[in-house]
Nucleic acid binder design. Structure first.
Length: 314
RNA sequence: GGUCGGGUAGCUCAGUUGGUAGAGCAACGGACUGAAAAUCCGUGCGUCGAGGGUUCAAGUCCCCCUCCGACCA
């Protein structure tokens, strides 16, 4: 059985690469439990569109699903706390954590030494203030203001990237500097011992798989799921309504496009998302890439397991 | 058969009074520490439907052919 010092097995990759199935097969084989690192699967009620593994298909315990309601704010820092304690709990049970996710930031927050100093995180008045400023005076004016107060940070953020300029203001309000944080980024190492695997799928193959998956989601009742969420005030949320597969269906349900157009938009947005994920994970040299083109979860899991068996166990 | 529109980047289209073409979207590449399925940055030689003509010079004018659409027969 795995002892508590065994490294966390980490499985990453773009959407539709087959992480979910492979991860639980690996977990089952090593006596482990899956921890999902996915910024949208944390929301209750968002099941079909986020590709959440249905409860009756789970063969090992899963964590990281349904942590909050769609209206509630969340953050990478909260996920870090959650993931670290999940790792600990699983190890205490003599299990082995299998972190599985496509949200790069959440994965890194979970396993790397990202420091999120204590303080207000989600319901941030500073964020609200500067976001309003940007809306009123424009992105350039916001950036100019940052340049006046923290030129070093302004220098490393593009004026159009309002989101990040605002973040620099937030840090400034806490007496920290975005520039300095960015400078130290490269030096950040692991906080949790891990073995990382990435599922590699050729873009063309992945695109076909994405298309099929989106059609399957619609067939499985995605539209009804969105309708239910809307009735429950889903649109009041900050992050949840931005989820791919949800925002497009909302457009259709509110009559701004047809369902067919919405479905096409979902496929396209998913493809673009997969590309961003590829870019994110590609540069992490710790990741060992596994060929997942065949779409055979068993085989992917076996490849991972065989590599794991070569790992020196402490 | 006739008249009028239109055939320009993968798609939708701009292209002033002729000076060898440019936007949006897509695609591709990249960034990313508290919203990250978010946010942002970078990359545009394409037989300007085919052929001929006028001109120093034609996507842009003329002729002819062809394809698509609308209307008239």
């Amino acid at each position: 059985m795995a002892d508590s010092r065994s490294p966390v097995i980490c499985i990453v990759g773009p959407t539709a690469s087959g992480k979910t199935d492979a991860a639980q097969l690996v977990a089952a084989a090593v006596g482990g439990e899956v921890v999902s690192a996915d910024s949208m699967q944390i929301y209750r009620g968002m099941d079909i569109g986020t590709g959440k593994l249905p409860a009756d298909e789970r063969i090992v315990p899963h964590h990281g699903f349904d942590l909050v309601d769609p209206g509630e704010p969340y953050s990478a820092a909260l996920f870090q706390t959650f993931a670290r304690s999940a790792f600990r709990d699983i190890a205490d049970r003599d299990g082995r954590p299998v972190l599985c996710g496509g949200t790069g930031l959440y994965v890194r927050a979970a396993i790397d030494d990202y420091a999120f100093p204590a303080g207000e995180q989600t319901d941030n008045p500073v964020r609200a203030q500067w976001t309003a400023f940007a809306e009123q005076h424009g992105a350039q004016a916001l950036w100019d203001e940052l340049e006046r107060r923290d030129p070093a940070s302004a220098a490393v953020v593009h004026p159009n990237n309002v989101r990040r300029v605002v973040r620099a203001f937030e840090l400034l309000a806490e007496g920290r500097s975005y520039a300095e944080q960015k400078r130290n980024l490269a030096a950040i190492g692991a906080a949790v011992p891990t073995v990382q695997f990435g599922l590699a799928v050729d873009p063309a193959v992945l695109a076909a798989r994405i298309n099929a998956r989106v059609d399957a989601m619609v067939a499985a009742g995605l539209v009804e799921e969105v309708r239910d969420l809307m009735a429950a005030g889903f649109r009041e949320g900050i992050t949840a309504p931005q989820a791919i597969g949800y925002k497009e269906i909302v457009e259709a349900l509110e009559g701004r496009c047809t369902l067919d157009e919405a479905v096409a938009a979902i496929k396209q947005a998913t493809r673009r998302y997969a590309k961003r994920q590829r870019t994110w994970f590609r540069r992490d040299e710790r990741i060992r890439w596994v060929d997942a083109n065949a779409g055979d979860a068993r085989r992917v899991a076996d490849q991972i397991l065989s590599q794991l068996s070569k790992e020196p166990t402490p």
